[in-house]
Amino acid sequence: MSRRHMIDLDQISAEEIEEILVTTDSMKEVLSREIKQVPALRGRTVVNMFFEESTRTRISFELAARALSANIVNFTARGSSVEKGESLIDTVRTLQALGADMVVIRHSQSGAPYLVAQHFHGPVINAGDGRHAHPSQALLDLFTIRERLGQLAGLKVVIVGDILHSRVARSDIWGLTRMGAHVTLCAPPTLLGPSHYWLATWPGISISHRLDAALEGADVVMALRIQKERMQGGLLPSLREYSRHYGLTPERLARLGEHTLIMHPGPMNEGVEISPEAATAPNSVIEAQVTNGVAVRMALLYRLGG
């Protein structure tokens, strides 16, 4: 209850995650009403600071803030502050002087929210920073899995794709293992990072380079977006090979149990990491993830700013 910021799930106890998920449930009820708005944050000003393009996450936070009756302002800038010749600290101080009560930040540099938190008087919510963390995404993943499967403890969750560059994977690792799930990270070694043998020593985590083996007995499979730049960086020989060996193809979909949830944090590269058949399969919860995202963000805004 006394938490000031939400920057990463690394230092959050299972109890607190549980509380957030319970609050999310209440927020979901609010979103199911005809009038999807409660006055809890009336008069508060939330600033969406987006230094990296992400229409989805920005809109999700915007809807969440509005459902709580907060004023929300979008501040969008591309590139790092240094490239623009404007310092992040200066931007934050300016927004504070303009009356911002809470900041939601998306930034291409890992750790940027910590810098903001040092110079802002109110709560800071991380909406994704570099490769580091994306706690609201991880929480909505936890909520969605639990909503469908009833629990998190003891589940086997396979995350397949670009682990090295993925803040979603990092936050999911913390959240899922904290709640007692087992996480299998599956990717070609280049996308696990040259140092992936460290990851294998983290409790509750195993590493695999073969998707078909990793999917044995999986309760959840989450595909991560593959960015085409990775090929130019030499990390992948071709998207074709990736898709055949690491993609959720119709053939793999057919072999999956019907109870295995299919997830994707979006935006999807259909035909690369996930086939259209898998994305729209009955056991796909990709749309539910998006819906639940608003409720989770309401819970975070409320708990930090209420």
Partner: peptide, 16 residues
């Protein structure tokens, strides 16, 4: 979520 003293008394757990 409708209380007028949220700001004064701080966040309270939301019920169902």
């Amino acid at each position: 979520l409708y209380r007028d003293d949220l700001r004064r008394r701080g966040m309270a757990e939301v019920g169902k």
